[in-house]
Design a protein around this nucleic acid. Structure first.
Lengths: 211, 211, 211, 211
DNA sequence: TATGAATGAGATTTCATTCAT
DNA sequence: GATGAATGAAATCTCATTCAT
């Protein structure tokens, strides 16, 4: 959580700091990233970063937060039906589509999974972050899975933690793929193609997790 | 690639160095790991490390190599039949079982995927590693996928790179799960359970990638 | 010497600033104390401190001054008789009693000696402070000693600077002791006990410095 | 406690480091002293200090130790007789003389009291140092005082902690005086004068603390 | 073959101080 | 009168790496 001062900066400044920091963290990992480098690149004075953020970890967390918060809002608004098996899978398809569209509109969002990966092993970060909010998406998946299993909409012969893991990793596969794709050629997909992609993802989930 | 001298050391010494280094890298990432710490823990002199390895990255690569090489040998010995669709999937089940058994016999192997993850973003490392050998497993998967697709044993409506990604990530899911499971309780699975796990993994691949 | 504006503040505000600053300086020394910390604790804005004081040293000096000035007034009002040896020592006993009582009424005063100690070695501070007023008490002691020696009321076989030093250090001994005592248990001495203490101090001076 | 490496340096190097550090600490206090400055002045590389010492506090402690250890050895060898009041005071005179001579031979030793003063309020330092050894001299004084009081060789109408304090402060008075004297003019006292000084000190103690 | 002393660049962080408003 | 954003020098400390022995 950055100090309130940070949010008093004009959007442009805020963005430019977080953009650079995000790029640096993604490129070199948490420990490998250099605040010096970030300051220099942003063109901000040495003390400024510490005027806005508590420390390196705080800056990192703020980058992560910026990526996650809108996504978490999105998640929160998603409605999943449990009326019938059919309705359940149908609404899950809608969810996949919504999420994919959001990712494509803001492809940087896909970096979040990379940032979360980077936290692994930085015990300091993990603690702070998890206490603060944890991975909302992982919780969302876990909850949905439990509920769907209890209704018999998803298979129960898989260990719950393993099933979650797989669901998450399939989602991450698409995130990675999108990130790589956009990084390489900044190609733009049409709305139709994005819908197709979401359908593919949903199909994989169904193939994998349907009873 | 460590200097040849390193391999003149007795096995025990080699192992103790790489064990400690591996633990340190996995725990703190590449940039975060401290050579000082590793030396101290191993009880080896400062100069020695530089006598055996070019630099930090070389030590890292050697750790990774140790984990990968036996696995690559295993891969190399696996026979996949392309005689018929049935035979293909049958031999793939054998492959999954072989791999799972190997992982359970040497659970540290599962750390390899974590080490490979750690490399991401350490541009220095990535370059060296890819030039040197790259991820053999990824290549194995990619080649199999191509061949199976060309024979019609696997679905073709998925982008090749995305399909690879998914195959790899499902494999990683199991690696992660195994690593976590062993880390937490050091529980031991019976042979039967391992076979069951391999079957599950294979089943997921089939559900996901069969035409 | 703070800017005149400072004294336009209401007493309460002035006190709260100096109280916190004094505590911080006594606790961490001049260099170790942090203006940031002080501002935060007082709840005063960053600019304000620099609006009221020239700089850190000025704030320090003001703390010291607040402690010393009333004491110096006290000193100034003390009458020492040089009519006879007997009268001299008698009036010195009165002086000791007056001073001790003042210290006990305002035990923080005893912190002054600690603050003065802290200045030692902060060459910047020493210079400013000595030029400005120096230790009034040291001067008072020195002057009394000279006069008493010249009248034969005090021994002359001691180097003057050494004798002063001893007189001062005996006084400081009591200051330290009082400070420690009050810090530890906040115990309160009765008037009688204070008088007894003053008598002890005076007795030590007489034993030490009488011819 | 410096790392053993430090003591492998030739005496000259060790001394030059500690001399500069001591001067810096005495001049500016612990917090005020700058390691950078010390390194620059000694002409030693930035890493070197941290190669020899754990941190700033360790360097400080080493300075203090160098001053104290020989003195503590001296204390340890001093014999105080408790056979009779006369013998007691006589042996105390010898002790004073021994100590004074030692101080004059190595006037820097007198800085120890200043260094110990500097530690006050640096809570970090105080803890480390006291746990490690504490002020040997204070203990020596306290023990002697108790024993002498129990035999009736010293007055018992003074609070023990206050009496200790006074004894210590009288000793410090002489230390301070010596340090100032040597700092100012580097004048040398003859053996006879030193003996005279010791006698004065002893006389003050007797006047002050004899029954 | 092996050591470990020594280095110095660079890391994160703090802090007194200034100045536009 | 008063604020607090912004600064940048300097602080402590770490670390991969070199090199004389």
């Amino acid at each position: 959580m950055p100090r309130p001062r940070f949010h008093n900066l004009d959007q442009e400044k805020q963005s430019s700091i977080l953009d650079v920091a995000e790029r640096e963290f993604v490129a070199k990992g948490f420990a490998g990233a250099s605040l010096n480098e970030i300051m220099r690149e942003v063109g901000v004075s040495k003390g400024a970063i510490y005027y806005y953020f508590d420390d390196k970890a705080d800056l990192f967390a703020t980058c992560l937060e910026r990526l996650m918060v809108p996504f978490e809002k999105l998640l929160h608004d998603i409605y999943i039906s449990f009326n019938s098996q059919e309705a359940f899978w149908e609404s899950l398809l809608d969810a996949c589509t919504t999420i994919q569209k959001s990712h494509h509109k803001n492809p940087k969002r896909a970096a979040a999974s990379r940032l979360e990966d980077l936290m692994k092993g930085e015990s300091l970060l993990e603690e702070r972050w998890r206490n603060q909010q944890g991975s909302e998406f992982a919780q969302w998946v876990s909850k949905l899975l439990s509920e769907a299993q209890s209704k018999g909409f998803m298979r129960m012969d898989l260990n719950h933690s393993l099933a979650s893991r797989i669901w998450l990793d399939i989602s991450h596969s698409f995130d990675h793929w999108i990130r790589e794709t956009y990084d390489e050629g900044a190609m733009m997909l049409t709305d139709e193609q994005v819908e197709q992609l979401a359908h593919t993802q949903w199909d994989l989930l169904r193939r994998t997790l349907a009873p």
